[in-house]
Nucleic acid binder design. Structure first.
Lengths: 211, 211
DNA sequence: ATTTTCTTGTTGCATTTGCAACAATATTTA
DNA sequence: TAAATATTGTTGCAAATGCAACAAGAAAAT
C-alpha cells in the first residue's frame, strides 16, 4: 500500500489512519469483472493497487471505446470522468483497487493533518499525470493517417520504456481500439512499415528503426 | 479577478495577498502573440482572465495541432502540458493572463493559511474539469468517420449550450483542426449532413435535427 | 488433452478521405 | 475605403481506410 504514488512520502501509520478516515475499502476483482458502473453518479475515488483496468464507454450503437487504460496508481471516479452516459470501469486482469470516499478525501477537517495535505498534493500530481496521458492520447489520435498514428504511438512507448525495442503492452486488437482505427487496416499498415524498413516486428516484440 | 474560478469563495484581501505571495503578474497579450513558449521548461502556472488562447504543438513536419483551447479560467503550464517539444501558448484574441510561480503556489508554508488550502482545492477542480474536457476531445477524435466526428462535436456543443441551435464557437478551419481532418472533406461531409436533413446550417449558425 | 474462444495475419473491394486547386465571400489592415 | 489576407464553399482524382470474410495460430476453459 505504501508504495502507491498516492501515498508517496507518507508513513504507514498515517496511511492507515487516513484510509480509515476516508472510509477506504480494499477490493479485489477478477478479470472482466466490473469494478464500477455508473461512474459519474458514484461518490467514490478509486486507485488501482495492482493489475489493470479500462475505463470504457459504450456509445449509442454499441461500439466500445476505451477512454482510458488504468494501471497501478491510476485514479478514477466521479470528477475524473465523463459527461456522458454508460461509463464503466472493467478489470482487464485480476486486480486490486482501493476505494475512498470522495467528499471525505477532499474536505480537510479542522485538524488539518500534514499527512492529509501531502495526500492532496499527491493526488494533484496524479491528476497532472493523467492530463499528460490524455494529451498524449490526443496527440496520437489527431494524426491524420494510420501510419502516423502507429508511429506516434510506438515512439511514445519507446520513449517511456527508454529503448527502441520493446514488447507491445497491448494486443493488436486493443491497439486498434486505442488508435480508433480498423484492425485489419492497421495490420496492413504495420506490414507496410515493416516492408519499408521503418520498424522490425516479430509478434508483439517491436523495434523502431527510425522515425 | 475575484470572479475567476481559481479564486472561488476566497475574499479579495486574501486573493491579493496570495497573488503577491506567489509572485503573480497580470499580463496582457495581443491577438496572435505568444503568451508562453517552451511551456515545459517554465516554472509558471497561467490562468486565462479574459480572451482565449490555444495550446499549440508543431510536429516535425510543421503541422500545427491545437492541443487545447484555453478560455477564461483555463489553467496551463509545466505540469499541465506535454512530454514533447515545441509546445506554445498563443493568444487567439487579445487576452489577459495571470501568471503565478508554480513552486510557490504548490508548497504550503508553515502558516497554512485557509485561503491557500481553498486555492489548492479550486485548482484541483479546474484540473478535473480539464480532464473532462480532454476526455471529451478523445471521444470526438476516436470516432471513425468525419461524419461521426462532426456529429459528436456538435452534440457536445449543443449539450453545453443547452439548445439544439447555436453559433459555432470556432471557425470551420479551426474546427477541422480540432477534429483533425481535412477541411474540404469536412465541409463536404457537413454538406451531406445538411442534404440528408440531419442538420440545418446557415454560415456559422447550426441546428441539429436529430442524431 | 481437447475443445472452444480470442488474436493475428491476409486479401479484394467499395467507400471515405486527403490533396490540390480555385472562386466567392468575409474580415482585417493599411 | 481600398487593398490585402483569411475563411468558406466546391470539385475531380488518387490514395488511404473500413468492411467483410476467412485461415492459422495462441490462449483459455472444460
Amino acid at each position: 500500500m505504501e508504495e502507491l504514488k498516492i501515498f508517496n512520502d507518507i508513513d504507514l501509520a498515517d496511511i492507515l489512519k487516513m484510509i480509515k478516515c476516508f472510509d477506504g475499502r480494499r477490493m479485489t476483482y477478477k478479470r472482466d469483472r466490473t469494478i464500477l458502473s455508473n461512474v459519474i453518479n458514484s461518490n467514490l475515488v478509486g486507485i488501482i493497487i495492482s493489475g489493470s483496468a479500462n475505463l470504457i464507454r459504450y456509445d449509442y450503437n454499441g461500439n466500445r471505446s476505451i477512454i482510458e487504460s488504468l494501471e497501478k496508481d491510476s485514479v478514477f471516479g466521479k470528477t475524473f470522468s465523463y459527461l456522458d452516459n454508460e461509463v464503466v470501469v472493467v478489470a482487464i486482469t485480476d486486480c486490486e483497487v482501493l476505494l475512498l470516499d470522495y467528499t471525505l478525501l477532499m474536505n480537510r477537517c479542522k485538524k488539518n493533518c500534514p499527512c492529509h495535505n501531502k495526500l492532496i498534493d499527491n493526488v494533484f500530481e496524479l491528476l497532472s499525470q493523467k492530463i499528460i496521458d490524455l494529451n498524449e492520447r490526443v496527440e496520437v489520435l489527431s494524426k491524420r493517417s494510420i501510419r502516423e498514428k502507429v508511429l506516434s504511438y510506438l515512439n511514445i512507448v519507446a520513449k517511456k520504456k527508454g529503448k527502441k525495442s520493446f514488447y507491445l503492452p497491448l494486443t493488436y486488437t486493443e491497439l486498434a481500439d486505442y488508435l480508433s482505427v480498423d484492425r485489419s487496416a492497421m495490420m496492413r499498415e504495420i506490414k507496410n512499415l515493416k516492408d519499408e524498413g521503418f520498424i522490425y516486428s516479430n509478434g508483439k516484440k517491436l523495434t523502431i528503426k527510425e522515425y
